[in-house]
Design a binder for these strands. Structure first.
Lengths: 166, 166
DNA sequence: CTCCATTTTGCAATTAGTTGCACTTGCATA
DNA sequence: TATGCAAGTGCAACTAATTGCAAAATGGAG
């Protein structure tokens, strides 16, 4: 993405296209997938060493509010940012192996519809992270980092203790 | 909940029932709804002034891992904790008025089923927070704190600019 | 081009939450 | 009751993210 394009995007959001914001946007746009604030900071600093980390966070907050980017906690210690494209997607995060898979927004449409019908609540689901166990880990029987729920256990207990630690 | 009951709960999770943990658990159990780590800290300190905040966080992490409590960011600056009961529920958070509504776990079952069928991914959804606009705010036309998506806009533009700031 | 109101930034301080490490406690076993 | 050791705690240092405020940059009007 060129300077001109990021300037256009910023103006279309009603934001001033400052040099800092252009560089932040380009860092996000040129990143293949998710990117952290710290990583954006490093990239922008190469071109604009004077930039302050709080400018990064403030710009990201603005872009989020305008639904130009998504903000997701994939459980990696810091939050990740991504350009929101027309075709929304979400993520499944494996609690056992850490694998991150993608699923299409259409999987969430029944939920959106149901909440709207039942509660007249208009959900704004930009980007979800759903934690659980992936196919591989279920097959190989790898033990999850997080435990199975207290309440999910078979009441007769024929599925074992389920109490071992990692 | 009595001392004996929290001791039993801790033991059933394979955790040592230390005085600190008993008090933390009782603070959660005696709280009507969601409770913050800071609030738990204050409550526990009344009985056990020596307790350290990191013990609170570590205990909460353990209880989360064992699916004994849920951990949810309702967008209030700090994360909230709640006892996980057999009947799971989730929340809708209004971006305009801040109202917090509840919905039953059955609304998420189609999603769980679809992800399992399509990807063999076993989702572990303890507690969700879904942001959006509540019925009241949609009716009164209150402006959301967060904007409508760039990509949701009517391509012919007959629904107005949608670009105004708060 | 200059002036001015408004927006944006840098900076320093602050908050929520986490971590490494040494000390303490709980509890199983003798 | 005493002992050994894993589990748990306190402490201090650290990280990610946020905020108030004064200075600087932006963009429109003259």
């Amino acid at each position: 993405m060129t300077r001109a394009e990021s300037e256009t995007l910023l103006r279309s959001l009603g934001l001033r296209p400052t040099p800092q914001r252009m560089l932040i946007l380009q860092a996000i746009l040129n990143s293949p997938g998710h990117i952290s604030a710290e990583h954006i900071y490093e990239q922008v600093r190469e071109e604009y060493p004077h930039i302050n980390i709080s400018t990064i966070y403030r710009t990201l907050e603005l872009l989020k509010e305008h639904h130009a980017i998504s903000v997701t906690d994939l459980g990696q210690g810091s939050v990740l940012y991504e350009l929101l494209k027309e075709k929304r997607h979400h993520h499944m995060v494996c609690l056992s192996c850490g694998k991150i898979l993608e699923f299409d927004h259409r999987f969430l449409e029944p939920l959106e519809t149901a909440l709207e019908k039942e509660y007249r609540f208009k959900a704004q689901i930009d980007h979800f992270a759903i934690f659980g166990l992936c196919a591989d880990c279920l097959l190989t029987g790898s033990r999850p980092i997080r435990k199975v729920s207290l309440w999910d256990r078979d009441p007769v207990g024929r599925d074992g203790k389920g109490e071992e630690d990692d």
